[in-house]
Structures are given as structure tokens and as C-alpha cells.
Amino acid sequence: MQKQKWNEEKIKQILKQMPSIKDDRSPEIIYRTIQMEEKTVRKAKRIMPILATACTIMILFIISQSFFDSKESLKSERKVAENSSIMKAEISDEAEQSKMENFDLADQQAEMLTSSLTPAAIYQEDVGDREVLTYPIPDENVQVIVPVSILVENPNHLTRFDLYVQNVKKLMGVNKRLSEYFPISPELFSYHLTDNNIQVEVKQEFMNFGSYSEAFFNTLIQQQLQTIGAKKMEFYTDGKLGAELGNRKETIIEYRPLENRAYFLLQDSESEEQPLYVPWEKPYDSIEIAFDAMEDDMETHGLTASIPDSIDIDKVSKDEKKRQLIVHLSNESKMEEDQKTLYAIEAILLTAKEFKYSTVKFENTKVKEVGRFLLTKEVAVPVAANRAYIEE
């Protein structure tokens, strides 16, 4: 197709052929219209930068807000983390404190348990300004003699004899395992001390409290003589020397020291009371033999072993110069911080005292202390057995 060539004449001819366009508006109206359109364009040109700036500000605000929110969130998260760490530390501290408190409570309980292990004998530190009196009382079956000891004040400075007689009645009924029949009661006898000899007047017929042996009755008398510090005891009936005492007739009994005896336990398995220490009435040839005997019950007389199976004495050595007994336990021994072990320790100490030892050193015990006994050091023997508490 041939391309047309445009010239001025050609364009005029084409325009003449187009329909005519007529504008009825006056020139003034047309001018104002044009002016308004120009203002609108100029106004639009001015508004666009403002809108752009506003949008920019809004975008910056949104971004900054997001940034601040993120920062605040980060700070919040950091604070939460810090709080969490603090809480964890506090919880850890509380747990540690609780743990320590539990340990302290356990220690207190252990201390309470240890302190509850009460010795049944009297020791020198218990005496103070008081005096020790020991009374021989038969058990409820009248088979053995139980030495029962008390601590008494002596403000009037009475003699041992007068103090002994004055406190006799206070021992009645101190333990249900002891006989209610008191064979040294003032109701039965009147006592007089002359030249360090005790004269006993039988006030009424002496009640037979069993077919006791000579050793049994001898222990009864010897314990009284030992406590009072007298040399002998003479028995009278109606002013005449000699008295029927149960199945025996007695006149004069001279003091012979009670020594080399082994201590056993008199106890009731159904009773919560402490057992009583009972020295066997016959002496032993050596302390080793005495310790061996203390490992077995003496069923015929209602006595039980004072050295349990858990404690095995391997050997015994002696320091005669220091009057110290060294008791070495075997590796199989299992000393515990319990009452049974405490009874065994006291029975060993009382027996050592019978053999004239002043202290006992325990070796290979595996425990440092039992109750008041510090086993890492030498332990002093008791002053007397079976402490009874009486009203002054």
C-alpha cells in the first residue's frame, strides 16, 4: 500500500470535510474554566509532595513504632529472662536453704536422739555438793540384789549412817521391777552405830522373802556396810545377839569389799523403763572371764546379757600404773549410737570399776560417741549404779 504524503493543502481539505464544532460559551466563561483547571493542576502539584511527606512520616512512625515495640519486646524479654534467672536463683537459694534446714533438722534430730541416750549410772560430774547413797533392794522375784543409788543434799551435815537411815523410806516403790518388800526397812529394824559397827535390832518377826542363798544375803549386808563405811553388822533380838532372818540365823557379818563382779541387765521386754544393772553375787577370777560371762543370759535369775552379740571384745589390755583398762573391739563389732550400746558401755564401765580400774579406753569402736560418752577419749567409770530420782 502506497504511503500517503501529507501537506498543508491536504490537511486543510480534510479539516473542511469534518463536521463543524460550535461552543456557545462566552469567552469569559471559557477563560475562567481554563484558569480553574490550571489552579487545580497547580494545587495537585503542591499537594502531592505534602502527601508524600505525610506518607513518609507515617511510614517512619510505623517503622519506628515497630522498632520501639521490638526494642520494648526485647527489653521485656530480657527482663523476663532476668526475672526468670532471679527466680531460678531464688528457687535454687530456697532449695539450698531448705536442704540446709533439712540437714540442720536432721542434725538436731540426731542430736536429740543422742542426747536422749540417758545413762542409768551416777558419775562424778553428777555429784557436785551432794552425797551418793546406794541401797541393796531385791528384785520383785527376790532372786538378785539390785544396787539402787540416789543423790541427796546434806545441809545439816549428818553422818553417813544417819543420812542413810533418814533416806531409806524414799526408795520404796522407785521401780516396779523391785520388790515391794523392803528388807532393810526401819519398820523391821532399828539401826545404831557404835564404834563404826552397826547394831541391828529386829523389831518384829522377819518375814521370809524367799529361800535366799548365803551370797544373796551377804550382798545385801555388804552393800549397806560399804555405803555407810562401817566395819561390821551385828544382829540382836530382844537385846540378845543373834536373829532369825528367814531361813537363816545371823549374828555378826564383817565387811568384805564387793569386788570383781560382772554386771548383767534386769529388764522387762514389755516395759519402756530403763533396765537395771545387777552385779552377779559371786566374784570372777579375771575381767576377761567376767566379760565373757556378760555375753550370755542368766535365765535362772532373770538376768539378760549386758554385752550384745553386735559387740565383740577382741582383747583386753591394762595400764596398771594409770589404772586404765583398754578394751579393743573386733572388726566385726557394730557399735551404734543407740540405747543398747549405751547399756553395754555402762555395764563394761561398772565391771571395770569392780576390778579397781578408774578409766576405760575403747578402741576400734567405729563410732565417736554414744550419748554422753566420747569414745575417742578415755571414759571414767561410774560412782554408782542405777540412779533413782527422789523428792528431796
Rank of each mutant, 00 (worst) to 15 (best):
W6Q: 15
N7W: 07
E9T: 13
E9N: 13
P19S: 15
K22H: 07
E38F: 08
V41L: 08
R46V: 13
M48L: 15
L51T: 09
C55F: 12
S64E: 10
S64Y: 15
Q65C: 05
F67Y: 13
F67W: 14
F67E: 10
K71Y: 03
E72T: 07
E82K: 12
I91Q: 04
E94Q: 14
A95K: 11
E96K: 05
S98I: 14
N102G: 14
D104L: 13
A106C: 11
A110K: 11
E111S: 11
L117S: 04
L117K: 02
I122N: 12
Y123S: 05
V127D: 10
V127Q: 12
P136C: 06
I137M: 10
I137F: 07
E140A: 11
Q143E: 13
V146G: 04
T159Q: 09
T159L: 10
V165S: 01
M172G: 00
L178G: 07
H192S: 14
Q204C: 08
M207P: 08
Y212M: 09
F217T: 07
I228E: 02
K232M: 07
D238A: 08
G239L: 05
G246H: 04
I253T: 10
L258D: 03
R261S: 03
A262P: 06
S269M: 11
V278H: 10
P279S: 08
W280M: 08
P283A: 06
M294R: 03
L303E: 10
T304M: 13
A305D: 06
I307Q: 00
S310P: 00
S317M: 08
D319P: 01
K321I: 09
L325W: 03
L325N: 03
N331A: 14
E332Q: 04
K334Y: 01
M335Q: 05
E346K: 03
T351C: 03
F355A: 07
F355D: 08
S358I: 00
V360W: 08
N364C: 05
K366A: 10
G371T: 09
K377N: 14
P382A: 05
Y389D: 15
Y389Q: 15
